[in-house]
């Protein structure tokens, strides 16, 4: 798809496909996915330019301005420490995106490697790997993540570990089932008969052909990781104060002040919902495009 617009008009008679045409087609065929992509782009924009967008320091307490209602001065109001909610939400996008992308990328890559290796080598290795994956899959995500946080402690980096570990076996299982079919392909036999090494066959011949399930898992993980991080932070076992994180903003004060200052719990929750909504819509569109069997369904 993307290589087409890079190549100039070499063959006459073919209309050059522009990137705008692709976008136009995407908007028509995947209206929900396009909506998701817009949310993601806005969020990335917010995270990258947080310094310029946020009017106040997200960590600065200001006791003259505690629990101020939304106004022109404080767009979304302030929390119980007088911190500007709008600034904290803008900076929170940075935390959410960082955790989301780190967990999804590492988790999906780990799963890709384990899944392909498990399918390629087969035999005892595959059997043992599958039993280990069974064990990991028997834990609900949040229970596993909480148990891991209790070992490594809290904080942004620890949360990433806690969320990534349960992702790996989930991706490995899906990738393995695709890789099993690829392993039987004649070109893999051919590669083996020429005497290519395991590494080369795995990296050059099998891995590129399981990219579809890999990308589907990767995009699905993005939203899931953001939501898990918010849940852990809400339980007080995730990102710690004073780092601005949406889940953390719902912890502590949010429930206490729910009635007198409803803006404190409303905005961060809305931010989480919109972000995860966007990533899920986008992930669905990616799945529709990459998985021909599901194309008409979804």
């Amino acid at each position: 798809m993307s290589t087409m617009d890079a190549s100039p008009e070499t063959n006459t008679g073919f209309k050059r496909v522009r990137i705008t045409d692709h976008i136009g087609r995407m908007v028509r065929r995947q209206p929900l996915g396009t909506g998701g992509a817009i949310v993601i782009i806005l969020m990335v924009f917010m995270a990258v330019f947080a310094e310029f967008i946020a009017p106040y320091d997200p960590e600065a307490n200001s006791f003259e301005h505690m629990l101020v209602a939304p106004s022109m001065e404080f767009l979304l109001g302030t929390d119980q420490f007088g911190r500007d909610l709008f600034s904290r939400i803008v900076y929170g996008a940075r935390t959410a995106l960082f955790v989301g992308f780190a967990c999804a990328l590492v988790g999906a890559f780990g799963g890709l490697i384990l899944g392909v290796a498990s399918a390629y080598f087969g035999g005892w290795f595959d059997l043992i790997m599958q039993r280990i994956i069974d064990v990991f899959m028997a834990f609900p995500l949040i229970i596993m993540a909480l148990a891991i946080v209790s070992i490594f402690g809290t904080g942004t980096d620890k949360v990433i570990i806690a969320i990534t570990i349960p992702f790996v076996p989930r991706c490995a299982r899906v990738v393995r089932s695709s890789a099993l079919a690829i392993r039987e392909m004649p070109y893999v036999d051919a590669a083996r008969s020429i005497g290519y090494g395991h590494m080369r066959i795995i990296m050059k011949h099998i891995a590129p052909n399981v990219l579809a399930p890999f990308l589907i898992m990767l995009t699905a993980f993005l939203g899931e990781a953001i939501l898990l991080e918010a849940s852990l932070s809400y339980l007080g076992m995730g990102v710690q104060e004073p780092t601005p994180a949406w889940g953390l903003m719902l912890q502590g004060g949010a429930e206490e002040y729910a009635e007198s200052a409803p803006w404190v719990p409303i905005w961060p929750g809305l931010a989480i919902t919109i972000a995860v909504f966007g990533f899920n819509l986008f992930g669905d569109a990616v799945r529709d495009i990459l998985d021909p069997k599901l194309r008409t369904r979804g």
Partner: peptide, 10 residues
């Protein structure tokens, strides 16, 4: 999809 996106604690 909103149901999946909305944190149940919120």
């Amino acid at each position: 999809i909103a149901g999946i996106a909305m944190p149940s604690f919120w």
